[in-house]
Design a binder for these strands. Structure first.
Lengths: 236, 236
DNA sequence: GAGTGGTCTAGACCACCCT
DNA sequence: GGGTGGTCTAGACCACTCA
């Protein structure tokens, strides 16, 4: 019945905030050993499970370090992690209040270059679908998409109509939950970026590369070139 | 006493895996309404709290969508999020098994350029510390660090010795827990990148920009230029 | 209004790992 | 060996939101 003494209800959120405050304001410096869960539960007038959730989440966020028997400590150097949300390109553009347009520039089916064959572990005879697409924001080129799709793993992609629906959206519907590796890098503008994004040859281009697997098979590999000045931003 | 019926102990991990399996293998397609927590608890032979933790974590990971009264659904388009760990540059290099070396190239205190004054909200008279440093991996230039530090907010930085300890490590110790905004971008190599990282003028450079606040004050702003070919990679 | 998830409690047992 | 966090349970009340 009696919960706290103060007006606030005991809650894992309040406890997280209070512990975060003590750490950021230096009350508990790097390396400090925190009181045990039972002790904190008494201090905050809540159950041990509530304290546990607070400390667990702060430890997942990289602020604290927990070990059985050793206790909970403030990390010496906080584990920094930035989380980037990867939206569908259409949603990204529309969220910015701009009009989205999609154009299929090229479509080809055939044997793959060596680099792609290695990535997809396909035999020389197997065919890949190669697509080149442009995504516009308010009529101006925004992103160029250079995609390879494994037709052995995704035969339906061979007959899908990519002239109106982008391959990314198609894939998300066909294979929604898959393993992904994503990279960010800088590259010199090649002929395609010059022609479709208006770059001068050799200009720096911000690029994303993504490879997608499902049940151990490589499904698709895509290289996304962004328009001049694009950046990926996150807070933490 | 009786827990499960099967040999496995009921655990939120097993439940997560099983639900993930049902979703990825298409048993529960996008938009599917999952059974309620109580129903799942009966199925898995565990308590509702255990089911709740499983579903909560899957929803935080972007796979599921939960609303009171409406229930738990498989997301139509999975919420994609990539998590990048941001290590100290020294740890990044040493983790790759290479030797780390740090060099302070320039140090200057003075009035700031307009762009920096805006960022730091300083008055014209206030001074900023400007540092240029290089981080080497196995003797080869790896990263160039161009940093501004707000001396009004961090007066100790004015007397710190940055000739042996990099400003990043110094800052992490002085102000461990702060707010950060980080961006990734591509830029043409300027004179500094050419001189210290061996770029040809105008070559594409992968860059990170980071601004750090603490208690509402802008503490520091840094631009990191990486050696040729660098990429940031994450899996999800 | 009623059904669902969100959270808290009190208690329990266990696994890990420091001393 | 013993103390700490890791997890589970059974029950409860609450808040949101859909019909």
């Amino acid at each position: 019945m009696m919960t706290n003494g103060s007006l606030e209800r005991a809650s894992f959120r309040h406890i997280k905030e209070e512990i975060l405050r003590r750490v950021t304001q230096g009350e508990w410096g790097p390396g400090t050993l925190l009181p045990g869960e039972i002790e904190l539960a008494v201090e905050f007038g809540c159950s041990r499970a509530t304290v546990n959730r607070s400390l667990r989440e702060l430890s997942e966020a990289g602020l604290l370090e927990r070990r059985r028997k050793a206790g909970t400590r403030v990390r010496l150097t906080p584990l920094r992690q930035a989380r980037f949300e990867i939206p569908l390109i259409r949603e990204e553009i529309e969220a910015a209040g701009a009009a989205y347009r999609y154009t299929l520039l090229q479509r080809a089916v055939g044997p793959a270059p060596v680099a792609m064959r290695k990535l997809f572990h396909t035999r020389p005879r197997e065919r890949l679908l190669h697509l080149l697409c442009r995504h516009d924001s308010d009529g101006a080129p925004y992103q160029l998409e250079d995609r390879w799709i494994n037709l052995a793993a995704l035969p339906q992609a061979g007959t899908a109509d990519f002239s109106t629906l982008g391959p990314n959206e198609w894939l998300v519907r066909a294979v929604p939950y898959s393993q992904v590796e994503i990279s960010f890098l800088a590259e010199a503008a090649g002929p395609a970026a010059c022609e479709h994004l208006g770059y001068a040859s050799g200009e720096p281009v911000f690029m994303t590369e993504r490879t997608t697997w499902w049940e151990g098979q490589t499904l698709t590999h895509v290289r996304l070139a962004y328009r001049r000045g694009h950046r990926m931003t996150a807070r933490y």
